[in-house]
Amino acid sequence: MAASPMHFNIHGVRAIYRFEMARWFRTLLSSIASPVISTSLYFVVFGAAIGSRMGDIGGVPYGAFIIPGLVMLTLLTESISNAAFGIFMPKWSGTIYEVLSAPVSTAEIVIGYVGAAATKSVLLGCLILATARVFVPYGIEHPLWMLAFLVLTAVSFSLFGFIIGIWAESWEKLQIVPLMIVTPLAFLGGSFYSIEMLPGIWREIALFNPVVYLISGFRWSFYGVSDVGVGMSLAMIGIFLALCLGGITWIFRSGYKIKR
């Protein structure tokens, strides 16, 4: 199912995007309040209570150091869950028949669903940054790079979430990847510490965690310090993005779990 070069179903993309954003606004309180509250709690516990006893890391006060990691943590989990839920829901309720029977290409479906999920994540990321400002004063050294990391990560992980949403045929499966894989990787990815602080072998093992590169690159855009090179971080996001795009192309070509 290739997109026709002569035509792009902009109305279709807009319809899906609006539908998904409307779903978010309907549950605005839980969609926005819960990440803001949980981030605030992180700041109270890690930033204020524990952070006051911690020294600077790479010249950055601990309270400020954890901000990029916290934003990434929310960005990853929210991108995945939003995008996964967005496509799982019509699959589960059966309303997906309409999308499948509509003159929309794979690319347009993905732009609609993933675009909306990524938009929500980016908005949430900004909201968390604003919330963090209440607790800790911080600056952003490379704002354009910061935005680039924010958007790239949101898009990549929304794509990943979209794949999970298609793969999952039960609510349990929908939760299992974010819960069992992504959250541990995010916690172990250096949200709250620099991997330089890890003892010997663990530092090497940590480098296998893709989230390390995301957080490191994102933190660099704030404070100019990073665990790994920025180029490396960007390359990792690029690879992940390409893998997800490849996965989605394969899914729609083969009809995996959506078409019989």
Partner: peptide, 15 residues
């Protein structure tokens, strides 16, 4: 209203 309008857009028709 929203769901019927959604369908029209999905099928590539302007509002």
């Amino acid at each position: 209203w929203a769901t019927v309008s959604f369908s029209r857009g999905l099928f590539g028709k302007p509002r």
